[in-house]
Amino acid sequence: MNLFRLGGDLLHVFSIFVLTLKIKTSKNVAGISLRTQQLYLLVFCTRYLDLLFTNPFRSGLTMYNTVFKILFIASSAYIVYLMRKKYKQTYSVKDDTFRVEFLIVPACLAGTLFHYRNTFFEIVWAFSIYMESVAIIPQLYLLQKTGEVENLTSHYIACLGGYRALYLLNWVWRFFTEPRYRHWIEWIAGTIQTALYADFFYYYFLNKTKGQKLKLP
């Protein structure tokens, strides 16, 4: 555990909190991609299958991981519920149209072909890593289609990008402090994932410095 990792995890939780806050305060889910949220739910459910077999009391880190894993699954399920049931009428159904097959199928293929160990759980785990790296794409697509989003929604995406950036720093840190740290799947997928936010950040900061709502050209 290092500060980058801890900061990344906390920022990840914070981003979900910001998203829930946006939905609760505005009582609408306009500008939020249900497709991205459902992909995240899929990512968490597949990655954290090990919850079923891990004793959370084995170590402090296991307990920490278990708490976060349950939190991520529960909160993303809750957001999907809010979007599909409670605030259904406000959902940007006409604009949230990115074809997720183009993401799920390649992630399945990548997971099947490139994994650490040839076991069911390792293949599903690798799939979840590849899936997460591109899960934000429907959200970014919706964003550029509508052109403008509420501040809290843009803060949400910014926090997610920040969480990814901190994870990259965590890996750099671990690479130099742990002699046998060789996690190429996380590095490749994580770098792709973080790079996806680059364009968003450019416009985010451009608009923030002007104190405006996020507006894309």
């Binding site: 990792r5 991981n65 160990r117 785990w125 994870y167 965590n170």
Partner: peptide, 10 residues
């Protein structure tokens, strides 16, 4: 390499 790789990150 360890027999069972335990993913220690989220």
């Amino acid at each position: 390499r360890r027999q069972l790789r335990i993913h220690d990150e989220l």
